[in-house]
């Protein structure tokens, strides 16, 4: 039952702990099964210490979102996620008024309102009296926090993931600038709200469907995650799908690496490799052969065009994969 004290040479890094180093971060990420290049660990470390947001770019499926998720797990902080899309605005991203609650309160407080207005002569005086109270319905009690505000309000800090920022409009980027630079937001009716605890660690991801504005880039650290090389990919598979036999892992990685050299509409990313490894594991496949690959090709290739292009090449690809073992 009790296997003794769990000794870790590298204690889990804390958001504001000045003693953490790149090695700590890297080891901690690895403990959470996120295997990345040393560049990734360096950037995460810098982001924690410099309190700068990170703009993560790279092809889909290389683990951009996963990096934020793992960092949140590593720091033991809540992950607050904001998925961007066209037309995203303040009301969905930052805050909204609880209209229902406001109306309900006004209804309930009608009598008190009568008291307030009791004896007031003329419109001007009534309005004057109301003015003394008007802010109550636009106070923080009536604010419905959306992800950005929520992240600021977390008392112990948080990891804020702003996913696919390139899908949002440019107006939204401008909205983010204040948050990213000063970790505060300004609500016109209330004023400026600063982070309650340590400022959130912000990850922005982009698939580069459009160029993110310079102003935003300048406030962020930039991290580009490319497709991993064979060794790194094998490590990732080992961490994510530990049950898979080493030989098959080698073949699988070599096969996917070879695929990435082909001219395909959508190159298979790490997430596809992981899915494929899991699939093969479920099917109890011990070694790649043409039949199994043909059966399961749709796990790694997402377009019929691509599948049709790859199928005739299968024997050659498999030979390479066997060689790369």
């Amino acid at each position: 039952m009790f296997t003794g004290a769990h000794v870790t040479e590298n204690p889990a890094p804390k958001l504001s702990d000045p003693t953490t180093s790149v090695e700590h971060v890297r080891a901690a990420l690895e403990r959470h099964a996120y295997i990345g290049s040393s560049r990734i660990a360096t950037v995460v470390h810098l982001a924690m210490r410099l309190q700068k947001p990170v703009l993560v770019e790279g092809p889909p499926g290389v683990g951009k979102t996963e990096l934020a998720r793992t960092t949140a797990a590593m720091l033991d902080l809540p992950l607050i996620r904001l998925q961007c899309h066209e037309g995203l605005d303040e009301a969905k991203a930052l805050y909204e008024w609880k209209y229902g609650k406001q109306l309900l309160y006004i209804q309930m407080l009608r009598e008190q309102l009568d008291d307030v207005l009791d004896g007031a002569r003329g419109l001007a005086e009534s309005v004057e009296r109301l003015h003394r109270h008007d802010d109550i319905f636009f106070s923080e009690a009536f604010v419905e926090p959306r992800p950005l505000l929520q992240a600021l309000r977390e008392p112990d800090g948080s990891v804020l993931l702003i996913d696919e920022i390139d899908k949002a409009d440019e107006a939204f980027e401008s909205l983010l600038l204040e948050l990213l630079a000063d970790y505060q937001v300004t609500l016109p009716e209330i004023g400026t709200i600063a982070a309650a605890g340590p400022p959130p660690l912000v990850f922005l991801t982009s698939n580069n469907t459009r160029e993110v504005s310079d102003a935003l880039k300048r406030r962020c650290l930039h991290l580009y995650i490319p497709f991993p090389d064979a060794a790194l990919e094998a490590q990732i598979i080992r961490a994510r799908v530990p049950e898979i036999p080493a030989a098959l892992r080698g073949e699988l990685v070599a096969f996917v690496q070879a695929l990435r050299e082909m001219d395909l509409r959508k190159l298979p990313a790490i997430s596809e490799t992981i899915d494929w490894a899991r699939t093969l594991l479920l099917l109890h496949v011990d070694a790649l052969d043409a039949d199994w690959v043909r059966e399961t090709l749709n796990v790694i290739l997402k377009f019929q065009d691509d599948i049709e292009r790859v199928e005739p090449q299968l024997p050659a690809l498999l030979r390479r994969a066997a060689g790369g073992r």
Partner: peptide
Amino acid sequence: DALGAVLAKSR
């Protein structure tokens, strides 16, 4: 890596 993350902002 560190300088690159801070100074270079696109690929």
